[in-house]
Design a protein around this nucleic acid. Sequence first.
DNA 1: CGGCAGGTGCGGA
DNA 2: TCCGCACCTGCC
Length: 313
Amino acid sequence: MPSGDKILELDGANMDIDLTSGDTEWEPGRRRQTMLWKGERLGLTYENAGTKSRPKVRVGVFSGKKLPPDFIDELRKEIVWRFNLDMDLSAFYKDVGNDPILKPAIRRFYGLRPMSPNSLYEYLIIDIVLQNTVVRRSVSMLQSLFEHYGTLLEYDNKRLWCYWEPAVLAEAGEQELRDLKVGYRAKSLVRVSESFAEGRINEFDLRQKSAKEQEEALLSLYGIGPASVGYIMFDALHRFDYMKNISPWEQKIYTHIFFKMDHEKHLVPVSKMLKRFERWGRWKGLAVNYAWENIWWKRRNERIPWLEKEIRL
DNA sequence: CGGCAGGTGCGGA
DNA sequence: TCCGCACCTGCC
């Protein structure tokens, strides 16, 4: 099938921060991704099995044991949620699709939707290792956690790590984690894991709550602040109108993308940015995301000097 | 070597 | 509410 006919590239991770670590691997037309679901460690493969007009994803499930039909059915529903496959983007395209900034991005990323292949707990772990460091070290920290607490699965001729249950990190304790060079993040990792292990936060309950309640619950977790909440609200809870925090490095990039200015000459204030984004109303988070992905995609083919300076790997 | 990084909690104004 | 500051570690 010609690649131009695909609606889903299935390259999962964002173009910018690719925290590709032990649990997933991509090759053209095929993504492998492990999943810890209802206590089972699964090896999944995702393949494009449709067309632009009739999109379809085929998922292969590898497991050490025979899985009953109702397990598979629940798994299917979970995958549909995580990848946000039921989302209807037509209203978004109709409402803001003629915006000159968004038009080329929508053409390029037609069908793209906020999603996360991970559970909420796993996403929080990723957020914590991303904090206040460079991507290289985040990857190294996550890899180290996999090697000490994860399970190595072999399926489909590959070996990939699978996440651990929250209780495992909760019981590991702060010092043991510090020894893995995660630094002061050890405390956050333990405390967030405890919150899940003790049932004080539950992903499935949280999905049913209002955006405000979700935000409060997430912020109450130790080590989770406005930046992490922003990513989770968007990717994991599919609140694509949530847009509160703009970090300094995002502010620099937005200054170029949305205001066509050099941030070194004039850094546009966050308040002004938020006001500008209001033009996209309930679509603002999604609109910003499309433009964001677009600039990273462009970087693959052409040099963007102002952007290069902002990248730390 | 010091400085600093795709943040956050904390204490004090 | 809004600041300034400390914080593991590793790389520049």
